[in-house]
Nucleic acid binder design. Structure first.
Lengths: 246, 246
DNA sequence: CCAAAAGTGTTGCGTATACACCCATGG
DNA sequence: CCATGGGTGTATACGCAACACTTTTGG
């Protein structure tokens, strides 16, 4: 079956990974975009962080490299969710030209493997030298993007919900070690894009043994101080190991 | 980010699609395998149906081509579920040599996009000229397979459950137009690999408006004849369209 | 009449939803 | 004392799981 019939000439697609790094900005779901230089244009142009894969690099490894280059983060849960390989991806000459300049390679076709993560928005400040080339764009107000990056982001947006359903633990990659019930609830509201009842949410929290109350509370707020919670990863892993599902 | 640092030489991975076509054989979940010729061996060697992608072909199109070449089927729901791209995939020299012979190409690395379908097992008989080169192997008793095909099949087995949960309609691709409650139940039992209570299952069936009773019953069985049901795809699509989920 | 599979209801449990008021704090 | 958000309980609805006997048919 691997025989290539109708072979006209040697055909070598390129393979890349693209990362959809999602975060929230107060009240909107946002995606991290990186600036790209477009010859002969003063406007800022953006794209998803991504890279062609290296020769001896696994797909997951490439994705973590891209994540780290873009954000400085290393230990965030990153999930492969779909590959995009339409020949039409390279139909825009401008996109292809930019990519050929950047990669110093002749590009005819590129298949990309897309990855997804929930990612702390504030961390970009730890990457000072890069921070002016990164933006968090609300997924509903995306700038012009090359290739099919909008489609990839849209797919990621669907995917994140299923992922949080199956692995609620990933949202704690996103939160600080101590967090309030409000912060946690907002993540769910933003990811699912719908309101969550406060009381029902707290009830659910109290059934999740891996969310534990601390004695600490907020300080310096001009209303009743909220209690801090923390995430117990040990308990979480015990409850969510595949071992229990079989 | 697409800049390839540490570039030693031009690096061109190949891209293929592989299809995991699942079916049931009375009581076991099975996967369709195709024979491959291995030089200097009389034994039969098998692999997943797959192909390098053609130059102007979308990934989905390539997957449907492979499906059709292997089974003659065209209208089965086929779902991309994961890509596999470890450099270690080509660590077995024998596999690579076979692939280079078959494709007439020098292969250093191959990234494959894996697809999944539930597929009628009997249809191979419509492909008489090929039927002796195809087998349905129980997923628990796989022969030796090249590359990481066992890993791909294992991943497909996990995936099929989630897919049936989200899109129960795919199981009707697999059944004849008229089917009994028993046949439908067996599919779920085999896919989920656990027993399903008969009464609870019928209750659930009766809540699914797209499963409609017919007046026909089995004939020629030496026990009480079972009633036939049919699948109403129109009703199903109305109930399962994304439109209703938003 | 017997073997073999078809068909049929009820109950309990746990989880999701809807909903409104008092509490603590800083200014 | 007031504005702001924190924190709490109850009642209802729904889906899921457990469970055993009668019916129909061919041989």
């Amino acid at each position: 079956m691997e025989t290539q019939k109708n072979k006209k000439e040697m055909f070598y697609p390129h393979v890349s990974v693209d990362c959809v790094l999602l975060g929230t900005n107060e009240d909107k779901l946002c995606v991290l975009l990186v600036e790209r230089q477009v010859a002969g244009s003063d406007e800022k142009h953006y794209k998803l962080p991504g890279s062609l894969i290296y020769e001896s690099e696994d797909l997951d490894t490439a994705a973590y490299r891209v994540l780290n280059e873009a954000t400085g983060l290393k230990r965030v849960a990153l999930k492969q969710f779909r590959s995009f390989g339409s020949p039409a991806r390279t139909k825009n000459k401008e996109d292809v030209q930019w990519l050929e300049n950047a990669s110093k390679m002749k590009i005819s076709r590129i298949v990309t493997v897309a990855y997804l993560a929930l990612c702390k928005i504030g961390k970009k400040t730890t990457m000072d030298e890069k921070s002016d080339t990164l933006i968090w764009a609300p997924v509903n107000e995306l700038p012009h993007l090359p290739f099919d990056h909008k489609e990839i982001i849209e797919a990621a947006r669907q995917e994140i919900r299923d992922w949080v359903d199956r692995e609620p633990g990933i949202v704690f990659d996103y939160l600080p070690p101590k967090f309030t019930a409000y912060q946690l609830r907002r993540i769910f509201e933003i990811v699912y894009d719908k309101e969550v009842d406060v009381r029902n949410f707290r009830k659910k929290m109290s059934t999740m043994e891996y969310i534990v109350q601390t004695d600490e509370t907020e300080t310096g707020v001009n209303h009743r101080a909220a209690r801090y919670f923390r995430f117990d990863r040990i308990k979480y892993n015990k409850l969510h190991s595949n071992f229990n599902k079989i």
